[in-house]
Nucleic acid binder design. Structure first.
Lengths: 190, 190, 190, 190
DNA sequence: TATGAATGAGTTTTCATTCAT
DNA sequence: TATGAATGAAAACTCATTCAT
């Protein structure tokens, strides 16, 4: 990436960009804490910035949501790629990736729905790219024990099952999550 | 129902009871359609009744939520019991029950969280009763192939994974649900 | 007008209607005091009513503006009619009417623009009706000294000149208004 | 302008002065287009300058308003003087001046109010000077047909009636303005 | 008692003004 | 100094809850 300062168009890009990052980070934080419906005021407070700044950077909710989704997709795409090319024990890498992905869903409640409902071309493109990464990962994993009927969509769905829920009926299901993960990982193996 | 019809109060009581049922049914309908945060207005509309009536029957949200949760728990407790005493192929009965339970979670998004967070003694009691039913079911199922490390809490957690989400990235995950169910059922078997 | 209570459709019409009137009156008051851009909060405060009530009665600004304009048009139409059928000194009645009309413009700054810009069919109809009344008045007045080249539009324009302005350069133009009115009334006479 | 160009400050001063003129011109343009409430952003856009520059030149609105009013007063004072000393048909010169003055009011909606409300000593002085010019003009015009009860304030008020309004109810009042002018000019004549 | 109108706190959004670059 | 980004108060609007009828 070319540094912003070399772009003659960009006056004040330094602080503006810094703020953009701050707001984006705060939005992710707020979305993970309060859901994707967190208010602009919540985000601004979290970013320690005025509401107006959030609006200046992301004049409408879809634009903000888009930026966050792209950020998340970039992150998990990277991990999918890493897991695919991992030189070490492949199944272990696959399990690690799946847990990472489940963790993202647990952090961002409703992520699947937002990804599915996104209208923005940029998100659609990134989503398709992401599915390709998943496809490659599955192809790789098939050779190392993954059920053949599990493709990218199924994998996505399975990870999506872990969308955040606090549901231990008696403060006892700390084990619930671990066991469920174990059950699913085992179930995914041929 | 055949209460002294000569008592001028009884008419009101019957009427009131009917209204309570209407509102309760409408609340379940609205909760399943819009989530547990459905507004009293939504519920009232669904019940074809004024908002005031909903407030009269359930002056505060917790009371309404309690009634709905008790209703749901009664229903799934009954199915757990049925599956336990089923004379036929026990594993098949277990699978049928699990799918039923997952279906309830799919209908009522966020059910686990509400059950876990309930403060009402009545719900707590019903929840304990429900866990006992699940315990009996597990004990029975252990003898027919269920992993020994899956107890009532784990079973509850696993079914809860299916809390409703519309998340097919490309209208392709009709297969997602079926396969996830298969993966989990397989993973639960020893 | 049929009383509201005879309309089977209208439950609670009594208080709702009462509030509608209150809000409408408050809107007129606020519009005259602060201009047609007075905020809903100003209007609500003026009506001693919650903002929500103003929104319930007039869910969007155009609807509120429409109601106010119709009210004003009804009022001045009535006066135009009265002046036309006045049995006594016709020119004096004409002058009285013109002063009344100028007063309305003085009270509601920007009235002409709002009338001209109205998109609502109801306002357009009322405006046409109003122009007809003015036409009749002019026809009548022509026979009593009004310049023949003054028709309804010209009359409207002339009265509109008095749109509210506080403009005495040295607290001395109390005479300004009176003299201007005299000059114009004289200028209108043949 | 030919200030010592060797003074390193002078460049800045010339530059600053040029900017001041630019902003002032833009303010007049914006005020005439959007009214005296035009935002600093509007003015900046019109001047093709950042908002900050407008604030630097005129740190507070009153200062900017003052500069604009002084500019306008200078202009109309000059015309009043010209009309007074005009050698040709005096009444015609008077009419021309009145139309010019009405035009200024039409261009700057709300000018009268701003002039009347000005707190700045400079504006007050200029206003008094302006009234003297008007006084002289009236004195001159009285001898050529102007009603004796029309003095400077009345004249100012009458011209102020033409403060801009777009109010043709049916795209027909092109005639409105011309006729109103005729009516008033006729009415002003003895 | 049932109703739906009224309430006002909360959210989204804009914009005049300030301030870091 | 000029710039335009940041600020936050205020406007428009929504909706859960209360209350008059």
């Amino acid at each position: 990436m070319v540094l912003a300062s070399s772009d003659p168009q960009s006056h004040l890009r330094v602080d503006a960009e810094r703020n953009r990052e701050r707001v984006l980070g705060a939005a992710k934080e707020a979305f993970s804490r309060l859901g994707f419906d967190a208010s602009y005021h919540d985000i601004a407070r979290s970013a320690k910035v005025g509401v107006g700044t959030v609006y200046r950077r992301f004049p409408e909710r879809p634009a903000l949501l888009e930026a966050v989704l792209l950020d998340i997709l970039r992150d998990i795409s990277f991990h999918a790629h890493s897991a695919t090319v991992d030189r070490r024990d492949s199944w272990q890498a696959f399990e690690a990736f799946f847990e990472k992905l489940a963790g993202v869903h647990q952090r961002y409640a409703g992520l699947s729905e937002r990804l599915a409902g996104a209208a923005s071309p940029a998100v659609k493109t990134a989503r398709d790219d992401w599915l390709e990464k998943l496809q490659a990962l599955c192809a790789h994993a098939w050779a190392h024990g993954l059920r053949k009927d599990i493709g990218p969509h199924e994998l996505h769905y399975l990870a999506g099952l872990f969308a955040r829920r606090e549901c231990d009926l008696a403060n006892q299901s700390r084990s619930g999550h671990a066991l469920a993960m174990r059950v699913i990982l085992d179930g995914m193996r041929q």
